[in-house]
Design a binder for these strands. Structure first.
Ligand SMILES: [Mn+2]
Ligand SMILES: [Mn+2]
Ligand SMILES: [Mn+2]
Ligand SMILES: [Mn+2]
Lengths: 217, 217
DNA sequence: AAAAATTTTTAGACTAGTCTAAATTTTTAT
DNA sequence: ATAAAAATTTAGACTAGTCTAAAAATTTTT
């Protein structure tokens, strides 16, 4: 059995690994988990003993197969709970993450399986992130950032890179929801902000900061 | 904010208080929480400092108003989750308690409120136990044990006193579900076992052990 | 009203997870 | 190739919650 804390470390190592090539560093983990590097070092020794990570002192860290399996299990639970909170209880996509951070640690194979069925085996969470399979496989998705789309193209909003409530609430306010169609009309050469038309209706300006965090297909 | 452990102690004190008059003893808490008396003593000092219990050394313990408010909050969450697991996910009444023991500690006012609404504001959990109000009031219910019912009376199964999976599975097997009608046909003078007719159909024998743990109206 | 038995509390130790400060290793700059 | 800087690990300490063993208080029995 694994503790909440161990599960959180594994999940964080998984996310950081996905973010860039090579081993994950102690400092990046410390930042991500809002702890100190010393604490991370301790935990890495422990996870290595349990064979959940490959770890050579001072050389960074990588999940073992078993570690990745566990990390994906936690991520699967997190995202399924987010779907439940959003679809069934009516929470906004800016509210679900915090609760899912707790719910993801409820330990029952049966529970997540039944919940998945109840929700109709969703493929994506409310932020457009794919839900790992029960067997522990993360579906690959091929999205582009809105900031990379060329003028004249029409795309659909598929997900977000930034998950903060502030960012999501900003999208809500401007009407940039998941699934909405976006026609890129113009890119400002100076600040790279984008002028877009939403669902063939209203036109609006999107800063590069926002466009970089919007995933489209 | 209060820890899982503190919440569990408060809940347990509440249950033991309800079970018999007077203060709750250290030993009974130790037994109920599957810890040792020494550990309970430590925690009682801590809860007393936080003004959640009235506590005089060697004299047992009683919840303060604030302590009871918190205990009822936890019990409310527990029972609402049990309804969800049973009604929406299709778990049996013998399976829900264990998961609810974890879910009850998810800390979000909003979550339990929305869940309650989603379930249609249920009044009772799958074991027939009443769900405390959001304001922290435990509804009173007037049930009798089946073992107290006199011959010739027809009653309805409203709840259980014993919550173990084994007992509940036994009831499933014999067809004694919540809501079913029970006509007491005969009481054996020797072992106090009861002969009953279920839903005006089949007749069966119920041991006194079982009858004492079945609540009827 | 003592003595015996039981219950409860205290003392001291352990684990998980965290911290700060110091030591060590690796990386970067000169 | 050194020296300086940055990253990482170790040392030692703290908290929450638990334990065993011993001490103290209460209750029961004689
Ligand atoms: Mn999330
Ligand atoms: Mn998400
Ligand atoms: Mn229960
Ligand atoms: Mn119940």
């Amino acid at each position: 059995m694994h503790s909440f804390t161990e599960e959180n470390y594994l999940k964080t190592i998984y996310y950081l690994s996905a973010r860039q090539e090579g081993e994950v560093t102690t400092n990046s983990l410390a930042e991500m988990t809002a702890t100190k590097a010393a604490s991370v070092s301790d935990m890495l020794r422990k996870l290595a003993e349990k064979q959940l990570i490959h770890y050579k002192k001072y050389q960074g860290v990588r999940l073992t197969e078993e570690g990745e399996r566990l990390a994906l299990k936690v991520i699967r639970r997190h995202r399924i709970w987010e779907v439940f909170l959003s679809e069934k209880l009516g929470f906004g996509w800016d509210e679900v993450h915090e609760m899912a951070e707790e719910l993801e640690h409820i330990r029952s194979e049966d529970l997540v399986q039944k919940l998945d069925a109840f929700l109709g085996y969703p493929q994506f969470d409310p932020h457009g992130d794919p839900i790992p399979s029960p067997a522990g496989h993360m579906p690959t998705v091929e999205y582009t950032k809105l900031s990379e789309v060329t003028v004249g193209e029409e795309v659909q909003v598929m997900g977000v890179l930034e998950h903060s409530p502030e960012f999501l609430q900003h999208l809500d306010k401007t009407g940039l929801n998941l699934g909405c169609r976006v026609l890129v009309q113009d890119v400002n050469a100076f600040d790279k902000s984008v002028s877009v038309q939403i669902n063939h209706e209203k036109t609006l300006f999107v800063s590069n900061e926002v466009a970089r965090n919007l995933l489209v297909n």
